[in-house]
Design a protein around this nucleic acid. Sequence first.
RNA 1: UGGGGCGUCGCCAAGUGGUUAAGGCAUCGGGUUUUGAUCCCGGUAUUCGGAGGUUCGAAUCCUCCCGCCCCAGCCA
Length: 551
Amino acid sequence: MTDIEKPTNFIQQIITADLEAGRVKEVVTRFPPEPNGYLHIGHAKSICLNFGLAEQFGGTCNLRFDDTNPEKEDDEYVQAIIEDVRWLGFDWGGEPRFASDYFGQLYSWAQQLISDGKAYICELNAEQMREYRGTLTEVGKNSPYRERPAAKSLELLEQMKVGAIDEGAMTLRAKIDMSSPNINMRDPVIYRIKKIPHHRTGDEWNIYPAYDFAHGQEDAIEGVTHSVCTLEFAANRPLYEWFTSNLPLPSIPRQYEFGRLNLNYTMTSKRKLKQLVDEGHVDGWNDPRMPTISGLRRRGVTAASVREFCDSLAVAKTDGIVDVAQFEHFIREDLNNNASRAMCVLNPLKITLSNYPKDQQELLVAPGHPNRDDLPSRELPFTRELYIDRNDFNEDTTLSRKKFKRLVIGEYVRLRSGYVIRADEVLKDATGEIIELICSYIPGTVGQDPPEGVRPRGVIHWVSATNSVDCDLYCYEKLFTVAAPDAGEESFIDHLNPDSLQIIKQCKAELGLAGAEVGQHFQFEREGYYAIDAKHSSAGKLVFNRTIALR
RNA sequence: UGGGGCGUCGCCAAGUGGUUAAGGCAUCGGGUUUUGAUCCCGGUAUUCGGAGGUUCGAAUCCUCCCGCCCCAGCCA
């Protein structure tokens, strides 16, 4: 559908070559989140890439939870992740997979490794292990337990498994090379004792496989052909390959790394996002200021715009920082094309049309969208008393037409989809504050040009004062005041924007908005895009989130 | 510092020895407009981290140098 052909990325090139050479006959990918937090915009890139690759090459993509660390994981996250991936529009055919489904298989592969003399139970504690590991420049030294007989290791592993050994007292380690320049290859721990109930396996296990011992094997079990992960795992690849070549796996998956998405003014670290939630800086994981998928959804960002944005991103090995304005561009693009228009006055200023009959009301018809007639039109009650925005009136009559395209005493303005009016008089209270404007309307100007000599300064939005609906608006700004909240010496908490949320109460919205539902998107003309807040809005109280302002 | 990876416009990025060095975002002009929105036109890198070299010809090949990122969790 796109007229501009997007160049193929290096992973697509590899897959194409693999297919042509017959190395793989069907492409299988996977999105492998750990259920220890909510998904964010960075994950969306990975999701779109993995599911997208499967789609492009007619293969499949699994959703697989990498739940090998019960300490941090929870079913709440599993459910949220499933909802988020679905919402983004992807399907993994059948049930999601879990690393924990393979614990039994993984355990017997561990036994196999021991029998083959390629793994051993080590009794070094954490601190000792660190000392033995060496540093970036010094090689490590062998553990004194390294040559322990396989039979003994097998026996100890079983004891670890049944809970007979204390946490931290022993580990199972792969026997590789303590002098490898790649620290990951210096006899990495592949099983550790954790006497913690697992969200799926309960207290069945007292030991859990480490990431490196699990991931490649999980891929192999599922027949994953191209295991795509982020750059920081590049140093783990030799280890990934060591396992796939030292174990009798049903298939040999290959790992490829690409640069993760970084956005300025945004934080994409599950740990730190969790901190924001736990410390109450935001209203939960789905706070509309959060870069989480659930936060974006609640804010009113569409799944389509997230997908479009992700697809526009390069899949390469450079790790850059994308300007959030680029993301916002796609949010506006989709909303501009699809959101129905509506009017809402944020700072109401009452105006009375002195020449409009007191009890008269006519229903004006406004289009749902300026250039889409498939969206239903709207009925706008027009009455003698209306509200316009205070910012759309100025007492300074010397303002040029070019500079101020709004109401000024003695001049005209067009009410959007309505009449042309003229401001005649300002009413103020004792303190000098403007409380009302007396105006007059020009009959016959709905959908018609005003008579000769009447030149409206511009078009402003409005709402009937006697037949409209009240609502609250939650307007958001960037959560952080600096482009790189995560850099520098100070904590990112110090860079939180104190004005990231502004609540505007008692706004006046056109009547039709009373029936707005969660999931609908609106453009409040001349203001921005808004969507019902699923948390605060209720039958008796309309609450909208500002998804994003108009440019 | 040992290993791994990366450096093309303010940001992202195509480019795979011969192109006027794409495109998007941002930005700056101008036009249309009953949203100061959208839309439409147009401007914005003699140059590809730097220096040498190979070649008729280099962002693309070679050499050296510089800079940035990742790895020393019983996290993933």
